[in-house]
Computed example of a mutant assay.
Amino acid sequence: MSRTHQPMWRSAALPAAAACLTLAALTGCSSGSSDSAGNKPADTASTAPGPAAGKGTAQDTSGTKTDAKNKTEQAAPPAEVSIPSIGVSSSLLRLGLNADRTVEVPPADKGMTAGWYTGSAAPGERGAAVLIGHNDTRFGRAVFHDLRKIHKGADIAVRNTLGKTAHFTVTGTQSVSKKSFPTDKVYGKTTERALRLITCDGSFDAQGHPVNNLIVYAALR
């Protein structure tokens, strides 16, 4: 994401008050290195979306905790993501939940590395798989800096730890306020084999934090 995106690893439900939580970021997730006035985004924590409470476990795409556990054991975790059209090639960190039950994001010093939210489906399996990356950090541009340039129909390839690659086709993008993040649409149960990419986007608030999230939706080919 931008200056503050970080994914997760545990499959636990978030508290009820977190229905529209955003991912906690390490460096003030931003969509660029400065705003229109030339001000640098604040180097402070920001947020990005997490699964809502009351929706089951974070990996509940199969309907029950037992099914989710079995699915996690059977599916090989993702190891690398590649988006040729925008020059992205990154290994994937495994990210879980912070102590406050917000979703983790990659460390600022690993801004060029995206992460897989382990409470989501494994890419290629039934359900929504979620990858999160910074737009930029205090160290400079990050892995998803050019994500806003992606177009419908673009290919996203995700290779797992067994060497198998799943190809996804971008079906659409959405820039939304972090205050109205579409939690159910991104993390909710689905019978499709879907992929979501998330980063920061938009203008900055008074504290220098990006006010939006950019979401890329893709479906397995």
Score class of each variant (00 low, 15 high):
residue 138 R to N: 12
residue 138 R to G: 12
residue 138 R to W: 13
residue 138 R to V: 14
residue 139 F to C: 01
residue 140 G to M: 07
residue 140 G to A: 01
residue 141 R to P: 04
residue 142 A to C: 10
residue 144 F to V: 14
residue 145 H to R: 06
residue 147 L to Y: 01
residue 147 L to H: 08
residue 147 L to M: 06
residue 150 I to Q: 05
residue 152 K to D: 05
residue 152 K to N: 08
residue 152 K to M: 06
residue 153 G to H: 07
residue 154 A to P: 00
residue 154 A to H: 02
residue 156 I to K: 05
residue 156 I to L: 08
residue 159 R to Y: 15
residue 159 R to D: 10
residue 160 N to E: 07
residue 160 N to M: 03
residue 162 L to V: 00
residue 163 G to A: 11
residue 163 G to M: 11
residue 163 G to Q: 15
residue 164 K to W: 10
residue 165 T to F: 12
residue 166 A to Y: 09
residue 166 A to C: 00
residue 166 A to F: 00
residue 168 F to C: 05
residue 169 T to D: 03
residue 170 V to Q: 04
residue 171 T to V: 03
residue 172 G to A: 05
residue 173 T to L: 03
residue 174 Q to F: 12
residue 174 Q to Y: 13
residue 174 Q to K: 14
residue 175 S to C: 06
residue 175 S to M: 15
residue 176 V to T: 13
residue 177 S to M: 03
residue 177 S to N: 10
residue 179 K to I: 02
residue 180 S to T: 11
residue 180 S to D: 08
residue 180 S to K: 02
residue 183 T to G: 10
residue 183 T to E: 15
residue 183 T to Y: 08
residue 185 K to C: 09
residue 186 V to P: 13
residue 186 V to Y: 11
residue 187 Y to S: 08
residue 189 K to V: 06
residue 190 T to L: 03
residue 191 T to W: 09
residue 192 E to N: 11
residue 193 R to I: 00
residue 193 R to T: 01
residue 194 A to D: 11
residue 197 L to F: 01
residue 198 I to N: 14
residue 198 I to D: 15
residue 198 I to V: 13
residue 199 T to A: 11
residue 200 C to Q: 02
residue 200 C to D: 05
residue 204 F to S: 12
residue 206 A to F: 04
residue 206 A to T: 09
residue 207 Q to R: 07
residue 208 G to F: 03
residue 209 H to G: 00
residue 210 P to I: 06
residue 212 N to F: 12
residue 212 N to G: 05
residue 213 N to H: 14
residue 214 L to Q: 01
